[in-house]
């Protein structure tokens, strides 16, 4: 399933790419793309939206606790 989130507060496109590759490594996530300019994240996952959100939020906050993730 394809899920989109808004991801707000990333510093630079380089960080965006790093975060995306970290999310991609998590279990249940097939792919993760972050567009720094549109502040949008697209994830392919076998999880449902709620579970994916919780999982990704955890990774984001560990990466940088100023990040905001919106459904």
């Amino acid at each position: 399933m394809k899920i989109k989130f808004n991801i707000i507060g990333l510093d630079c496109p380089n960080c965006a790419a790093k975060l995306a590759s970290q999310i991609e490594e998590a279990e249940g996530i097939d792919s993760a793309k972050i567009n720094f300019l549109t502040e949008k994240m697209t994830v392919e996952t076998s999880l449902d939206e709620g579970a994916a959100y919780d999982l990704i939020l955890k990774i984001c906050l560990a990466f940088d606790d100023d990040l905001k993730l919106e459904k």
């Binding site: 630079c12 496109p13 380089n14 790419a17 720094f36 300019l37 549109t38």
Partner: peptide
């Protein structure tokens, strides 16, 4: 630090 490079090009196309 690579950020100057990585940001400017996509932003142009954006």
């Amino acid at each position: 630090c690579p950020c100057a490079l990585v940001i400017s090009v996509p932003l142009s196309f954006f």
